[in-house]
């Protein structure tokens, strides 16, 4: 297994070079005139005539041949320099570190309802096959699957913030933000406010952070439930038809034990794979959710950066995702081997 892990990890640099070269190539389809836009957020700054634009293009080396620009960039990457993100107003690497805790926090908060409720609904649906609970669950998961994120997000925001005023957008209320950003009052440890608040013994901040997490977490989870529920349901249905389950029943075990001790454990093997990938996918899929809820995480930054043609940010975020996917896949594979002793990693 160790050799397998090393082999998989060794793939990362190759993958990153491939991904970055591809994205870099795509971005070169834009002319220097278009790419210079990333450095000029105010059109007024550009009106002094053609000289200024050309100076900017030269200043940022946008007129160099593609391979020169790429080598220049990759050289920086090896020195730990992913370039300056105009959208974040800081170096790209620093921006990833800056925005990651927020997205991680949101993902973790979304993963809990996703996994717990999703699996529970899937199991219930299978156990009560073709009964009302099955129909309702399927209805809920199918609507979740077919709802575009921005529609669902806006609807819940309008109801629970616009009409009821319960769950505001953003990450913290202004008063809490003032506390959290005052080093004298609050020590940032993880960057995840719901965790740091507890470490600082500030329950008021914790409650405020959670209040802001409810809607985006539910939005993220709801839209992913469908797949998880369906996989759990069909896997569970199949397991319940297995002979060993019937044997367990014949032994006179209670239905509860049959389902939760015997059937569920085996049914969850494929679910673990899917669930693991979904949690990683959540971190990827926060772009729209974070934008709607004004939740300043990786997704928000990426959406903003992409609109501004902030190339270092786009490259940095994509590479980060590449690493995340490779490592995430690896973890899931290992997990799979741990859950199911029949699987051997070679």
């Amino acid at each position: 297994m160790f050799a397998y892990i090393v082999r998989r990890l060794a793939l990362i640099p190759i993958l990153l070079v491939g991904v970055s070269a591809f994205i870099f190539g795509m971005l070169q389809l834009l002319s220097p005139w278009e790419r210079v836009a990333a450095y000029v957020s105010d059109p007024a700054a550009l009106r002094e005539g053609r000289d200024e634009l050309e100076l900017l293009i030269k200043k940022y080396g946008l007129d160099q041949p593609i391979h020169v620009q790429y080598l220049e960039w990759i050289k920086g990457v090896f020195q730990g320099n992913l370039g300056w993100s105009e959208a974040a107003r800081m170096p790209t690497l620093q921006a990833i570190a800056y925005y990651l805790p927020a997205s991680l926090e949101l993902t973790l908060w979304a993963a809990v309802p996703l996994l717990v409720i999703g699996i529970w609904l899937g199991v219930m649906s299978a156990v009560h096959h073709n009964r009302w609970i099955d129909h309702v669950t399927r209805f809920i998961s199918i609507t979740g699957w077919s709802f575009p994120t921005f529609v669902f997000g806006l609807v819940v925001l309008m109801i629970f913030y616009g009409a009821l005023g319960w769950f505001p957008p953003g990450r913290l209320s202004t008063w809490a933000s003032l506390v959290v950003n005052d080093p004298g009052q609050f020590r940032a440890v993880t960057g995840m406010y719901s965790v740091d608040a507890l470490l600082n013994g500030r329950l008021d901040i914790w409650a405020d952070a959670v209040r802001h997490l409810v809607l985006p977490a539910i939005t993220l989870a709801y839209l992913s439930w469908a797949l998880l529920v369906r996989v759990t349901r069909s896997s569970m249905l199949e397991t319940l038809r297995q002979e060993y389950v019937q044997t367990a029943r014949a032994k006179g075990l209670s239905e509860n034990k049959v389902i939760h001790r015997h059937a569920k454990r085996n049914a969850l093997i494929p679910v673990a794979t899917i669930g693991g990938m979904m949690v990683i996918g959540l971190l990827n899929g926060v772009v729209i959710t974070e934008t709607i809820f004004n939740y300043k995480g990786l997704g928000y930054w990426f959406a903003y950066a992409a609109r501004q043609l902030d190339i270092p940010a786009v490259l940095g975020f994509t590479m980060f995702n590449g690493v995340l996917m490779v490592v995430g896949n690896l973890v899931v594979d290992i997990l799979y081997a741990v859950i199911d002793p029949r699987v051997r990693l070679e």
Partner: peptide, 17 residues
Amino acid sequence: KVVTEWGTRLLMLKEGD
């Protein structure tokens, strides 16, 4: 504050945030 999403900005105005 920076809020790029229009709907969110409007709701913030309505709520007094």
